[in-house]
Design a protein around this nucleic acid. Structure first.
Lengths: 212, 212, 212, 212
DNA sequence: TATGAATGAGTCTTCATTCAT
DNA sequence: CATGAATGAAGACTCATTCAT
C-alpha cells in the first residue's frame, strides 16, 4: 500500500503466492491480533520463506493494510452486485418482512464466511488510522448507501415508518452485528436457534417491536 | 491475578500507585492494544519507574488480567446496585418506554465513562483465554441475569410480547452496542442526535418496530 | 541440548559460526563465570550479532549446557583413544614409573590445553544440575574406567600394592589436579619445576611415598 | 572492605545482625554462586530487611570480600593455634604416620565444617582479584608456612625423604583436597570408606607409595 | 537503627527486515 | 524470483542500591 491507495490493487495482478500469504495473514492476524502475530508464523502458514513475504509486502504493516483489498473484493463486490435495486425489484411482489429476512440472511452468510478477515480489519482499524481512513472513505459509504437506498424505498412505499433513514439502517446493522458478536462470544447465553430462525425473529422484532 | 480469582481483589487493598498504574494501562492499552503497548509508556503515563509496574504486576500480561478488577468494580457494582428490582419497582407507575429509556440511558452513560477499559477487555478477550474465562463465568452472567429479570417482569405483566427472554435481552444490548460502536467509529454517518434523543428513538424502535 | 542428550551432537553438524560462538562462550565464561558473563560480550568475542547466538542456542543456559559437547570431543575422545590397552601394552616392556609418567604427562598437556573449558564446566556444575548429571552419567564413568583398568593391570602383574583400585585412581587424579590447581593459583608457592620434572617427582612420591 | 584491608575487621565489633547477614551470604553464595545470588534472598535468609544489608556492607561485592574475615577467623585461627610446634611436640613420641593422620584428620574436620565458606571463596577468587590478593598475601602464606614447618621438622629428624619441602606440602594438600572434592562431587565413585579409614589409607599411600 | 517501596540501568531475548546466494 | 541466515534495535523484566520514614 503506502503510496498506492487500495483501489489500485483491484487489478487482479496477484500471484498465487501473494494470495497465499494474504490468506495466511488473515488467519494468523485473526487468531493472534496484528501485533501478536509473527511474520515467521505467517510464512509457515503460507508455506513460503519468510523473506518472500517482504518481496510482496514491504513491511508487516503493509500486509495488514493490504487486507483491505480482499475485504473489498470478497465483501463489497457481492454486496454491490446484489444491490438495492435487485432487492427492491424482487421485493415488489413480496411482503417486506420476507425481503428483509432474505437481505439479512444473505449478509449474515457473507459475514460468517469472512469472519477472520472482518474481525481483523474491524479490530485493527481502532489502532491504525491508515486502515480506518479507507474504511471510512471507501467501504463504509458503499455499504451504507445500499442500506439507505433499501430503507428509503420502503419508506417511500409506506412499508416503514418515517424515522430518519440512517437510524433504521443502523438498527438493521446493530441487530445483525449484535447477533453475530454475542452468539459467537457467549454462545451458551446467546446462541438460541439456528441462523434461519434467528433472522426471522430479529426481523420480526425490528419490524414490529417487542411491545405487545 | 495468578491463583486468586479476581473477586478476591475486592478488598480495597490497592495503593494509590497501583491504581495509577492500572489507569495508565487502561489508557495505553486502549490506544495501542495490549501487544502494541510498551511498559515504558505505561510507566511514563503513570509517572512511576518502569520497575515499579513489575512490583505490583508480575508481568505485562498480569497487568492486562488485572483490568478485570476495575471492570467489575466500576462496571458491575453500579449495574448490580441499580438492580432489576429497583427498576421494576419504579417501573410500576410509569409506562414501559420511559423505564426502558431510563435503563438504557443509565447504561449508556456508564459505558461511555469507561470506554477505554471496556474496549480493551472486549478486544483482548479474543486473544487471551485467561481474560475470556472470568468474563464468561463471572461478569456476563450477572449482566445477563439483571437484563433477563427486567425483561421477564415486563413479559409477566403483559408489557412485552412472548419472545424468548434472552432474545429480547440480546436485542436491547445489540441496539445499545450498535449505537455506541457505530456512532463512535463513523460519527459522520451514525451520530444523528444527542444521546437522549437517540435513546428515545432506539427505545421506540425496539418497542414498536419500524413497520408502519 | 534440550531433549537431545549431548551425544547426539557428535555429528559434526556444527557451522563455523556456531563453533565460534561456543569458543567465545568458553573464553568469556571462564573469565567471568556463567552468571557474570554477558551475551553481548560473547557475541562481540565471536564476532557475530547478539541475535545470532540465539539462533543456535535458544537461551544463555543452553549455551552453557552445550559446552558438554566440546568437552567430550576435545577431552574424552583422545582420552578414550589412547586407551588403557595401549598404555598397558606399551607398559609391558617398560618400568611402571615410566609408564605412569607418560600417562600423567599426557593428561596434563590435554588438561592444560583446555583449562578454560574444564574450569567453566567444573565450576558451573556446582550450580546447574543439568550440567552435573551428564558429567556424572557420561563423562566421569569413562575417565574413571580407563584409570581403573590401568590400575588393575598393574595390580594384577604385581607392580602396585593391593589397595582398593578406586583409591589408587583417586590418588593419581588428586596429585595431578592438586599440582595443576595449586601451581596455577599460587605459582609463587607451588610452581616448583617444569612440568616434566614435576610429573617425575609426583610419580616418584605416588609410587614410593615420602617416608624415608 | 574497599579501603580497609580485611585485617581491620579483626576487631570483634560485629553486631549480631551483621553476623547473621554474613552467614546468610555464605549459605546463599555457596548454593547459587556470587552472581547468581540475590540480595533479596540473603536478606530473607538473614531475616533482615534488604536495606539493612547495605547498612553494613556498602555493596554486594563488599559482602563477598567480607567473607575473608570469617574465613580467617574460623579457618586460620585454629590452624595457627594448633600450630606446627604443638603437632611436632606431640609427634616426638609417636610414629610419623600417626601424627600425619591426626593432622590431616583435624584439617579435614575443619574444612568440612566450613565447606560453603571455603567453596565460595575458592571459586569466586577466580573471578575477583580483590578476593584473590588477600588470599595470596595473607592467608596462603600462613597455611603454607605451618605445613612447611611440619614437613621440615620431619625431614630434619629423618622421617621424610629429602624432597623439596614445598613439594611434600603440596602433596599433602593435594591428597586431602582430592579426597574432599572427588568424594563430594562423585560420591558413588569416590566415597569409599569413612573419613577415619580414608585418612589412614591416604597417609599410608603418601608415606609409602603404591608400588609394591 | 532498620525498613522496604521505589528506582532505572542493564540483561536476555525476540522478531521484522535485509541481502548474499 | 525465492530463500533463510544473519542482523540489531527494541522490549519485558530483574535486581542492586537508595532514601524517606
Amino acid at each position: 500500500m503506502d503510496e498506492k491507495n487500495f483501489n489500485e490493487y483491484n487489478q487482479e495482478e496477484m500471484t498465487e503466492k501473494q494470495i497465499r500469504i494474504l490468506e495466511a495473514a488473515i488467519k494468523v492476524f485473526s487468531e493472534k491480533g496484528f501485533e501478536g502475530s509473527r511474520t515467521s508464523e505467517i510464512a509457515k502458514e503460507a508455506e513460503v520463506a519468510e523473506g518472500t513475504i517482504f518481496k510482496y509486502f514491504r513491511t508487516k504493516k503493509d500486509l495488514l493494510l493490504s487486507l483491505l483489498f480482499p475485504l473489498s473484493i470478497k465483501f463489497l463486490k457481492p454486496f454491490v452486485m446484489k444491490s438495492a435495486e435487485e432487492i427492491i425489484e424482487r421485493g415488489k411482489d413480496k411482503p417486506p418482512d420476507e425481503v428483509l429476512r432474505e437481505l439479512l440472511m444473505d449478509r449474515l452468510k457473507l459475514i460468517k464466511k469472512n469472519i477472520p478477515l472482518i474481525k481483523t480489519v474491524a479490530i485493527e482499524s481502532f489502532y491504525h488510522d491508515e486502515l480506518l481512513e479507507p474504511i471510512k472513505d471507501k467501504i463504509a459509504p458503499q455499504v451504507i448507501n445500499i442500506l439507505d437506498n433499501y430503507v428509503d424505498a420502503h419508506k417511500d412505499n409506506g412499508d416503514f415508518k418515517d424515522y430518519d433513514t440512517r437510524l433504521i439502517s443502523r438498527s438493521l446493522m446493530s441487530m445483525l452485528m449484535g447477533y453475530i458478536v454475542l452468539s459467537s462470544i457467549l454462545p451458551e447465553y446467546f446462541s438460541l436457534y439456528d441462523d434461519e430462525e434467528e433472522i426471522k425473529k430479529i426481523v420480526d422484532i425490528l419490524l414490529n417491536g417487542i411491545k405487545r
